[in-house]
Amino acid sequence: MALRGLGRRISIGKRCFSSASEVEKRPRDGKQINLFSAINQALHIALETDSRAYVFGEDVGFGGVFRCTTGLADRFGRNRVFNTPLCEQGIAGFAIGLAAMGNRAIAEIQFADYIYPAFDQIVNEAAKFRYRSGNQFNCGGLTIRSPYGAVGHGGHYHSQSPEAFFCHVPGLKVVIPRSPQQAKGLLLACIRDPNPVVFFEPKWLYRLAVEEVPERDYMLPLSQAEVIRQGSDITLVGWGAQLSVLERACDEAAKDGISCELIDLRTLIPWDKETVEASVRKTGRLLVSHEAPVTGGFGAEISASIAERCFLRHGLQLEAPVARICGLDTPFPLVYEPFYMPTKNKVLDAIKATVNY
């Protein structure tokens, strides 16, 4: 496929945001790897520690388009790591059945842009399985992995961010990591969670994001946001690859004396309202940024919830309207991608406008 290989492998240093993570609080025992290698490590551990775990999807047998499943079939056999037909609805349906039989089904949708044929299976079957049976049956061992977001040259069909569709569905969890360290720990937590999970991987960072990742088995908590930068003037919230954009905007704002608090949501559903609310009650201002189109994006849910909770409470109030810096309400463009993306400068302008409101 045209998107095989996403440019040079480089370290982006602080942009991996390892300064305050749960993993760094433990003894170091890892080495520098990129995000797709961290995903690969997590899948190796999941298969090694649970004989009921299976990995399957289009082309996963030889490593997949982004090489996240490299070496799995050779180590664990073709009966546990195998290719499927090019049918996303079939992949999801098979995964639900496999999980319903008590297995750990780890299904890959090759690009999030092609998850829509599986939408009915995920939304009407996986999400409701436990509830329609009164918890007599469930498919809680189901994890659906899929690369999402901009890639630099993906155009209409390899750049979409469809997370908001699934955040609307009770019964699902939606998780998006920002770095290799986070990706490994969050993916293992998703695979072992007793609920079906959609795990979106920022393809932009597969090779660009490099940081020290422990080689051991570890998990990071779901539904717990992380404050990765303390500040006092404005709260910034994002997830996935957008965190690197927000971090650079924070650095620039600091030159003008603006102190930004930066939060990685990590789990979108159920999301950590308490952490975001506590931050906004301190700063009095909020900016949310994501690649998906602004209308109906998950940033709208965050904005509405925080407005309800923080508009006027115990003498504290929002000092300015909630700002959203997101993708445009257009199909994802190819030639005009730089205009579409929520960039550092767009975020910086919104920070200044919000603080000076």
Rank of each mutant, 00 (worst) to 15 (best):
Y336V: 07
T69F: 10
W204P: 03
F332L: 06
L43C: 03
I191R: 03
L205A: 07
G57L: 12
D233S: 09
Y206C: 13
N40Q: 13
P194C: 09
K273M: 14
F76Q: 06
P180N: 00
Y148Q: 06
Q89A: 14
L6I: 12
R52Q: 11
I45V: 11
E291A: 11
M1N: 10
L98I: 11
E108R: 01
G64S: 01
F36E: 01
Q160T: 12
K352Y: 11
T49I: 14
A46V: 12
E337D: 04
A300F: 12
V280M: 07
F199C: 02
E291I: 14
A254N: 10
A249C: 10
G7S: 07
V288D: 04
G63I: 06
L328N: 05
F199H: 01
D329K: 10
R78P: 00
L205D: 14
Q317F: 03
L222I: 04
K173T: 01
A164H: 09
A150R: 07
A95I: 14
E226K: 01
A320H: 01
I302F: 13
I228W: 01
F339D: 15
A209W: 10
C310M: 04
A253F: 00
L328R: 11
A95H: 08
D349H: 14
S259T: 13
C310K: 00
P85G: 05
L287N: 01
R4F: 10
T143M: 00
G134N: 12
V151N: 15
G141Y: 09
N195D: 14
Q230S: 11
C68T: 13
V335T: 11
I258Q: 12
T49P: 10
L318G: 12
R75T: 05
I10R: 12
A118M: 05
A292P: 04
M341C: 08
E291C: 13
Y114S: 04
F56Q: 03
G30L: 02
E215H: 11
I269W: 02
L318I: 02
R26K: 15
A112Q: 05
P27A: 07
A107T: 10
V347I: 13
V198S: 02
G102M: 07
R216E: 05
D329L: 02
A38N: 00
V322S: 01
V213C: 14
F119A: 14
A278E: 12
N40F: 07
R145D: 00
C250E: 09
C16G: 12
V294S: 09
P221Q: 01
P338S: 05
Q32H: 11
R80P: 00
G185E: 12
Q136H: 03
L35W: 01
G57I: 08
E291K: 13
P147N: 08
E301H: 15
R281A: 10
G240Y: 09
A304L: 09
Y336E: 08
Q121W: 14
